[in-house]
């Protein structure tokens, strides 16, 4: 039944099924292209959906909190997340798009969004991009689908060990919600009817240094060829006490660069360390015929954020 149900709580009324909509910045574009009219579950009236609450253990960000709010209000305590939020899409989109919607958006692959073709994510039985055009495709070839995950926010949340709260009270780690990206039919591991209600961040790091960089062809407002985010905590001796490096635009899920993080921990942020950590991010890269350029671009993009963190210029 086509129409709309306005939810006031995250618990779905029995028998109601449909497509969830928050800010609508992903769904409205797909409805327009596909000229489809599924039943819509509107989340914008859910209680507590847009609030940001802090306590000693961390911060709860309502799933309906806009990207602009995340960029503005979390810049002091979570600068890596805020910088990522502030650099995605355009000011108009950031003012409407939500943190939950950003996590749960569908792939931006040009085959997936084309009305006249089917892919593994739209009910087809093969990936037309793999043998077709995939200039913006993955570098880590771990799935039958070859288009990168679209969520910059997910990449940033990964390096915060963030969790999401689901309707019904349980919570799961962001890493778990994203999964390993191997299943080519899914953009995330949320089940039917599993609604995100909030993002849960651990307590901030005091004196976090952070940087985000999006490698693109134009000035701004473009899906990343490669993106990287980094947060670092230094000890009194100027050595890396803790760090997180996230990488996006390269795999069907955002990646956390554990090997590079291990190289940084205990070291100073000198040129050699930065070079070896950046190079470590390309380990196991298996570019597609058209994505070979992304291998040096990964190194360049990670180096960019590490150098900025070293210079403390977010």
């Amino acid at each position: 039944m086509s129409g709309i149900t306005f939810l006031t709580s995250a618990d779905l009324p029995p028998g109601v099924e449909g497509v969830v909509r928050a800010g609508g910045t992903d769904l409205q574009e797909r409805l327009r292209t596909a000229n489809a009219t599924p039943h819509i579950l509107d989340l914008t009236g859910i209680d507590g959906y847009t609030s940001v609450d802090r306590d000693d253990d961390g911060t709860r960000i309502g799933a309906g909190t806009t990207i602009a709010t995340v960029a503005r209000e979390l810049s002091d305590d979570y600068p890596a997340l805020a910088a990522t939020a502030g650099a995605l899409a355009t000011p108009q989109i950031r003012a409407v798009a939500t943190i939950g919607g950003n996590l749960a958006q569908r792939t931006r692959c040009w085959y997936f969004r084309h009305p006249h073709t089917a892919c593994l994510k739209s009910g087809g039985d093969s990936c037309p991009a793999r043998g077709g055009r995939h200039l913006y495709g993955v570098v880590f070839d771990t799935s039958a689908c070859v288009h990168p995950h679209p969520s910059s926010i997910a990449m940033a949340l990964l390096i915060h060990d963030a969790e999401v709260a689901l309707a019904g009270g349980q919570s799961r780690s962001v890493a778990e919600v994203l999964g390993d990206g191997v299943d080519p039919t899914r953009d995330n591991q949320l089940g039917d009817g599993e609604l995100l209600t909030a993002v849960l961040l651990p307590a901030p790091w005091p004196d976090e240094r952070a940087a985000y960089h999006r490698s693109i062809s134009r000035f701004e407002a473009e899906w990343p060829l490669v993106e990287a985010v980094c947060r670092v905590r230094l000890d009194d001796g100027g050595r890396v006490a803790d760090c997180g490096i996230g990488l996006g635009g390269v795999a069907t899920v955002p990646l956390r660069m554990r090997a590079a993080e291990d190289l940084l921990r205990g070291s100073t942020l000198d040129d050699d360390t930065i070079a070896s950590a950046s190079a470590a991010c390309t380990q196991r890269a298996e570019p597609l015929p058209e994505t070979g350029y992304k291998v040096p671009l990964i190194e360049a993009t990670v180096r960019e954020v590490l150098e900025r963190v070293a210079a403390d210029q977010a």
């Binding site: 910045t25 355009t90 000011p91």
Partner: peptide, 27 residues
């Protein structure tokens, strides 16, 4: 563009610029 890219559909909601092509009408 119908995809929130070009801004030709920008309106102000409470003074904030918004791309009305991606804004659900019910909002």
């Amino acid at each position: 563009c119908g995809g929130g890219v070009c801004g030709a559909c920008t309106i102000l909601i409470g003074g904030e610029p918004t791309a009305s092509c991606l804004l659900p009408a019910t909002s």
